[in-house]
Amino acid sequence: MLNPDEMPRRLGAFLTARAGQDATVVSYKPMIGGYSRLMARADIRWKDGRTETVVLRGDPPPGKAMMETDRDVEWALLQSLTQASSIPMAKALHYDGTGSELGTKCIVLEFVEGSSLQALLNTCDPAQGYGRHTFDLVDTMARVHRIDPNDVGSAIPRPTDWSSYIDTLIDRFRQAEAAHVESNPFLRYVAGWLQANKPAPLPLRLVHSDFQPANIMVDPSGDHLMIDWELAHIGDPREDIGYYAVYSASSGPSLIMSDPVAFLARYREQTGFSEEAVNLATLGYFSSLAAITVYAQVLGGAGAMARGLNAGILTTYTLNALTVGHSNFMAGCIPPAA
């Protein structure tokens, strides 16, 4: 994937070896919109006359990734979810786990007709509202959180209990600060606040961890398919609500902040979770807590650049996401009354 000119030949050989018939790549185009991984779309013509479109998702060259995640883990998770049919998603088809065939570790996925929910939202007139999209988004989030954690098997780690899991998550703020090249008082402040203000627990579930409309494909019938599972883990489902609130505040439209009460009521209805656990206060709490997963990745990229180990426009461009994170930390950590 690192050299698009070579990819038609490489991909053709890769698919031929797996399908038992010759595959010819008739077009290969890098895709835009992915921040963490290289993406491309390829049209295939099989020897038996069938045609097929696939999507490739591979690692950037060493030192050029804005975040480091493990393709082996993502592939195992995608396989588990595909086999369990837990949620509509682009099927995981093949994997080059060594990079020897496609030039980098690369997952080959089924192509989904349609467009992203973000693209659809961008065409809406804010004055007219977003129609069915709001509740569709809530329902898709709830559907992710209704997945039986057993469906993912041993693909990703399974925390033992909610309390120790939350403690581990909070500690990631301190770890991120300790590992960084300079002090960051926001992280130690928010860690202390989160520790002192833990909400009521919920059952641990599959958390997408980058839940936002650019990662939801909408097919021609209007159904949603989740993509980009690289940060998924077993955790507190409210992480996705908080993350979405944070993300959409800076890259709108925000389908939650226009009417958070209605959003959360629909979510409770779809998941069966209680109002004690899902309310405006826990939305604020998890808006701070959930951001750490992506925040720590971006901060790690910044630290690597400062140490001369990373480079690239994605790393420098996403530094601003850290400031967005700081704003949300401060908004989520309610100060004491004077």
Partner: peptide, 15 residues
């Protein structure tokens, strides 16, 4: 100060 450095910002190309 960070916000003055950031200025107007959103994830470009995410669609």
């Amino acid at each position: 100060h960070e916000n003055r450095i950031k200025g107007e910002w959103a994830f470009v190309g995410r669609a």
